[in-house]
Amino acid sequence: MNFLIFAISAVVVVLAAVQLNRYGDVISQKSKLSGAVVGTFLIAGATSLPELTTSLTAVYIDNPDIAVGNMLGSNVFNVLILAAVDLIYRKQKMFNSIEQKQHLPSAIAGIIFTLVVVVSLFLDSTLSLFNIGIEMFILVGLYVLTVRFFENDEGEEMDEAAATGKDVSLKAASIGFAISAIVVFAAGSALSITGDQLAQQTGMSSSFVGSFLIAASTSLPELVTVLVAFKMGNYDMAVGSILGSNLFNLQLLAITDLFYQNGPILSATSGGNLPIALLFIGMMVLTIFMMVRKKVESFARYAAPSLLIVVMYFVSSYFLF
């Protein structure tokens, strides 16, 4: 029964999160608060709401491994999405077409942010301020610096939003957004609760459940975003949406830690989350390599790094399981 509830909840999260993204686009276009900054935060928050609600529920049921594993695992799954889609559409040679200068800063920032988490997990640091791990303040500070560094340029994304949402009124979009958010909250909570029960019943580790099963479910809206970007032929949007989502997910760790009352949340997790963080860094190194290398015409040579990312994911899943 728990498997059935878990599967249904995962489907509901995906469908509701897609609607969140759609209505968020419309609101950012039609409200008086429209603009690149508002759109960025609104859409980023909408897309990441499944991860946030799932992790907060995991905190409520006192399972920090699922809470942290969900965030780190979502980032790993996001990179897997990019590699898998790149393999499927290898004839388009996505990484040969993107503007690397637009994406390198966020890719490098993702590695730096995750290294902060790795160091904290490795040292099992208990340094805290207001019951929040000191590493969370570092993550937020680095994120603020990164955002200030970037130049916001979302013209094409906004044009797409206008095209997809021109028949939806602002009031209807606002109501739809609120309803979708409530549905995501309920389904995300069900994911955490049933995931915790599955871990207890099957003997699977909570870090595996959070990092792979739940993370894959909550990251499927990003897959939809990437596929839409490919349909538009906008490969920069596909890469940018994944890299931006990764940075935002790491910030949600700080919010999760804020609600965790038993000290710094990273110090309360098991060692199972450290390999996930290291796996993400390895996958991101390969992604950066694909960005900076010279254009490759051979299908086999071009696809090799993406194939390696996919293999790394499934091999890691096997050993962690």
Rank of each mutant, 00 (worst) to 15 (best):
S106D: 06
V209H: 03
L170E: 11
V117E: 02
V140L: 14
D153Y: 08
K101E: 13
E222C: 06
L191Q: 09
S120G: 11
Q200E: 15
L20H: 05
Q19H: 10
N96V: 07
D257W: 07
L142V: 02
V239L: 14
F259G: 09
S169I: 02
G244V: 01
A277D: 08
S192P: 06
M71A: 15
A36W: 00
D124F: 01
L274H: 06
V119M: 10
D153N: 15
V285K: 03
A187G: 09
A300N: 11
F150Q: 13
S316H: 04
A46V: 10
A186Y: 12
N234M: 02
L198S: 05
P64I: 06
F130K: 05
F319M: 02
Y260I: 01
F150P: 01
N78I: 07
V119C: 08
L72P: 03
N96S: 10
A7Y: 11
I214D: 00
I66A: 06
A181K: 00
M312A: 15
S169R: 00
N273I: 05
S206M: 02
L308I: 14
I111Q: 01
E151D: 13
S28P: 04
D159A: 15
E160W: 13
T57P: 07
Q19I: 02
L307C: 06
G110V: 04
T126D: 13
A268N: 15
E160V: 13
Q200I: 13
I281N: 05
S207F: 10
L278T: 09
V292G: 14
F137L: 14
